[in-house]
Structure formats: C-alpha cells, structure tokens
C-alpha cells in the first residue's frame, strides 16, 4: 500500500493477558542438572503465572483510516495466539513445548512466531517487530528485532 505517498510510518503496541502453568524441566538432563540450571523454578509439578504479552508493530499509516493496522485485527490475532496457551499447562498441553522448556524466553519466542504467522495471513502491511512478555512485574523478556 503506497497510500498517498506521504510515507508516514508509525509504531504501536497492543497488550493481552493469559495465565498458564509451566514446569522448568529438560527431560534430556538429569534431575541434578535440572535442579542446578533452573534453581527455584524447578519443581515436580511446576507453578503458574499471569503473563502479560505486548506486541510491537510498525508500518505505514493508511491515508484512508489513519491507522497502521486496525486494533480489532490485532486483538483477534492475540486472542488466537494466547488462546493456545491460556489456562493450560504448557509442558503437557502445548505441543510446541513437548521438547522445548517453556521458559519465559521460549514462550516469548513462541508468541513472536505465532503472531507473525497469523499476521501474514491477513492483508495488513504492518510488521511485528518484537514482543515483550512479562512473567510478572519483576521479570520480562523482549524477543524480536530489538
């Protein structure tokens, strides 16, 4: 979409929430190695978090709508992606984490890839630049083009 040629570009962020359980456990390693690497995050059943996901997007401003992308479309994508994680135990219920440890880093990477895939199905020229995933207010991960 070349628009009116003004070339105005903008960035925006949209937030979504989801809650899920996870366990820091790498089956390829011994119990001792798991305990050593994951410390207090390693336990038999795991624990849960109320995650906050922020998607950072950028693109040209559509001269007709004044928008980079309709936030309702972003919300629909975030609902699909967080719906794959929300109220599940990541290690057991989400195939992507069958072999990958669902650390904050890997969950952020998963969200980045899935949002990108969903975004590419639509017609918007907006691009996902990065995601920020808060595990809580004292720990978060940024993943993408930083």
């Amino acid at each position: 979409m070349s628009g009116n040629g003004s070339g105005d570009w903008a960035r925006l962020a949209r937030r979504a929430h989801f809650s899920c359980g996870h366990r820091y456990y790498q089956p390829a390693l011994s119990e001792e190695a798991n305990r050593e690497i994951f410390g207090s995050c390693y336990s038999e059943h795991g624990h849960g978090h109320n995650y906050i996901l922020e998607a950072y997007l950028e693109g040209p401003i559509d001269p007709l709508t004044g928008m980079v992308i309709n936030l309702m479309d972003v919300d629909a994508i975030l609902k699909v992606v967080t719906g794959e994680l929300d109220h599940r135990h990541l290690n057991f219920d989400v195939p992507a984490f069958k072999d990958e440890v669902p650390t904050t880093e890997n969950v952020a990477k998963f969200c980045f890839r899935r949002i990108q895939e969903e975004l590419e199905k639509g017609a918007s020229p907006a691009k996902l630049t990065s995601v920020r995933l808060y595990e809580n207010e004292d720990l978060w991960v940024d993943y993408g083009k930083l």
């Binding site: 904050t104 880093e105 952020a108 990477k109 980045f112 207010e137 004292d138 720990l139 978060w140 991960v141 940024d142 993943y143 993408g144 083009k145 930083l146």
Partner: peptide, 12 residues
C-alpha cells in the same frame, strides 16, 4: 539469527 532476546529483571 536476526532476532535477539533480552531478559530484564527488576530489583527494589
């Protein structure tokens, strides 16, 4: 390889 990962911790 174009993507990076930043981890932030907050301390009081």
């Amino acid at each position: 390889h174009n993507f990076s990962c930043h981890l932030t911790r907050r301390y009081s």
